[in-house]
């Protein structure tokens, strides 16, 4: 019996281990191959560095220009996270308000949609005109982009509480607050966390786009400005370096919220529960 089980289990164990290794190894391999091809293209065609810099040069630029890029990264990060925080507070607050009354939702939801579908790049110049403080203007732009997924997902989540459970709460004479606290908010959690993952990336995009539009110079300039500046000076390696930093930031934000989501949901939600079949 035990022998049979071992034999049955082992190949599966092995295939699982192979898959686990492949999960990290394959993307890394693809990345390495791409970089090598990139390098070869630059070398074989003898491309000048102001058209396409070789990966080594980009890495060197990232190292040498760290003194310029790092403060810019911090500026971009600050706007991104402030915007995200305000988006979470605003989106969740508004969603809870919507959940209280259908009439409020009917009245305001279309405007939330309008805010979302109007391209931020088209609105940003106006916001920069009306809001004197550039920093706050950037924040508003990033917030507009980030808050909609949180609002719409949380609204959906708050409304998707199990109907029989709502009946049960009714049966025990639960107050509106109790229904919200013990039923609607926990039901909305997976939806909210899904929205948060999207909003994290969007707030970065929002802040970069707004910064491009603002083109603000001097102190307190973020990565987008450094890209513009490097472009004017034909310092293409630095453009790439800044771009890599933005990408890396986006990836880290995504991974961070994926981990947060997993930690919160791992006990009960299908999306986070590992199942053996």
């Amino acid at each position: 019996m035990s022998v049979a089980v071992e034999q049955a289990v082992r190949p599966r164990d092995r295939s699982e281990r192979i898959e686990r290794i492949a999960r990290t190894a394959l993307p890394i391999a693809i990345g390495v191959v791409s970089i090598v091809i990139w390098d070869l293209v630059v070398r074989l065609n003898d491309l000048p560095h102001y058209i396409l810099p070789a990966p080594g040069l980009v890495a060197k630029s990232l190292w040498n220009d760290w003194g310029t890029l790092y403060p810019a990264l911090l500026v971009t990060l600050r706007i991104t996270f402030l915007a995200l925080a305000v988006a979470v507070i605003g989106g969740v607050g508004l969603a809870i308000l919507f959940a209280q009354s259908k009439w409020i939702e009917i009245s305001f939801f279309p405007y939330a949609v309008i805010l979302q579908v109007t391209p931020i790049i088209a609105v940003a110049p106006l916001i920069l005109i009306y809001v004197e403080n550039t920093h706050i203007a950037l924040l508003i732009c990033a917030w507009i982009v980030a808050f909609f997924p949180i609002l719409s997902n949380t609204t959906l989540g708050l409304n998707s509480a199990d109907h029989n459970l709502i009946n049960l709460f009714q049966l025990y004479g639960a107050t509106r607050w109790q229904v919200l606290r013990y039923l609607r908010i926990p039901s909305a959690m997976p939806y909210f966390l899904g929205g948060l993952r999207i909003a994290g990336g969007l707030s970065l995009i929002g802040s970069v786009v707004a910064e491009f539009t603002a083109g603000s110079a001097g102190q307190g300039s973020g990565l987008a400005f450094r890209i513009l500046e490097a472009g004017y000076r034909l310092n293409i390696p630095r453009m790439f370096a800044a771009l890599i930093l933005i990408s890396a930031t986006g990836i880290v934000i995504f991974l961070f919220f994926t981990a947060v989501s997993h930690l919160i949901l791992r006990k009960w939600h299908e999306s986070a529960v590992r199942r053996e079949n």
């Binding site: 029989n164 459970l165 013990y182 039923l183 926990p186 959690m189 939600h269």
Partner: peptide, 10 residues
């Protein structure tokens, strides 16, 4: 209820 109708997060 016909279904257990439990709160999955609790």
């Amino acid at each position: 209820f016909q279904e257990p109708t439990l709160m999955p997060w609790a």
